[in-house]
Design a binder for these strands. Structure first.
Length: 234
DNA sequence: AATCACTAGCGCCCCCTGCTGGC
DNA sequence: GCCAGCAGGGGGCGCTAGTGATT
């Protein structure tokens, strides 16, 4: 460490000792400086001296306020990705983002082969091993592994006037957007090899068209005796 | 020496999205 | 088709630690 001022050096030298003379009277945690202790005690008591001039939020430190203002008001994002257009308020967010380009997964699960790009995802993954279901539906007390899963449960099961998604090709209504995706893939995607109807010579490149076609055979007497002219529907 | 603003860095929790597989 | 499990990408805040500048 080097510094222009002797006072900065004197202060710096102290970080190499364990000396932390300022102790919180509420939790006994110790700090190197009075300012750190004051911020810590303010966090205990909910004292937030730094008020945002554009909304109701308030913070313990000026740094927290500055960050909040970037997120909510100035929208300034100083950390730019060199590969794509992404930018972020915080350096750590850019770091996390860049892993989506590099594929780097530094956080490995010690119970399986999974590895994550950030610590939170690993933490979320770990509950798949514990079997824990931390989220409870306030209406029916059903339990869930992720908050988002619970949220969609509450919407679908207990919500009113829940919108449904209509298939653009066949007028089927489906509750979940992702299930519409499954529907489109399974029934409306183009199949390179046409599938033949099991009752006639017709062939289709789309599974939905095939099932619709098969319905036209419903009232036919499809099952014929090969010894005589007998035929029946079933 | 005390105090301020500022940066850096860890963590926590949430959101939305979309796929999977059992029913 | 409905449903819960589960992973990817990302937003926003809580808090601590250290440094430069000023009082």
């Amino acid at each position: 460490f080097t510094s222009l001022r002797i006072s900065s050096l004197n202060r710096h030298v102290k970080i190499h000792s364990d000396e932390k003379p300022h102790v919180c009277h509420l939790c006994l945690k110790a700090f190197r400086t009075a300012t750190l202790l004051r911020n810590h005690v303010n966090a205990h008591t909910g004292t937030r001296p730094y008020k945002c001039s554009d909304c109701d939020m308030a913070f313990v430190t000026s740094g927290e306020l500055a960050r909040h203002r970037r997120y909510k008001h100035t929208l300034e994002k100083p950390f730019k990705c060199s590969i794509c257009k992404y930018s972020s308020v915080e350096a750590s967010k850019l770091k996390r983002h860049i892993r989506s380009h590099t594929g780097e997964r530094p956080y490995a699960c010690y119970l399986c082969s999974y590895a994550s790009k950030d610590t939170c995802k690993l933490k979320r993954h770990m509950i798949t091993h514990s079997g824990e279901k931390p989220y409870e539906c306030y209406v029916c007390q059903a339990r869930f592994t992720q908050s988002g899963t619970m949220k969609i449960h509450i919407l679908q099961k207990h919500g009113e006037n829940v919108p449904k998604y209509q298939c653009p090709h066949c007028s089927t209504f489906i509750a979940r957007k992702s299930d519409l995706g499954v529907h489109l893939r399974n029934l409306h995607s183009y199949m390179a090899v046409a599938v033949k109807c099991s009752y006639c010579e017709a062939a289709f490149h789309e599974r939905y068209a095939l099932t619709q076609h098969k319905k036209t055979h419903r009232n036919e007497k499809r099952f014929r005796c090969d010894q005589c002219s007998y035929a029946c529907k079933q």
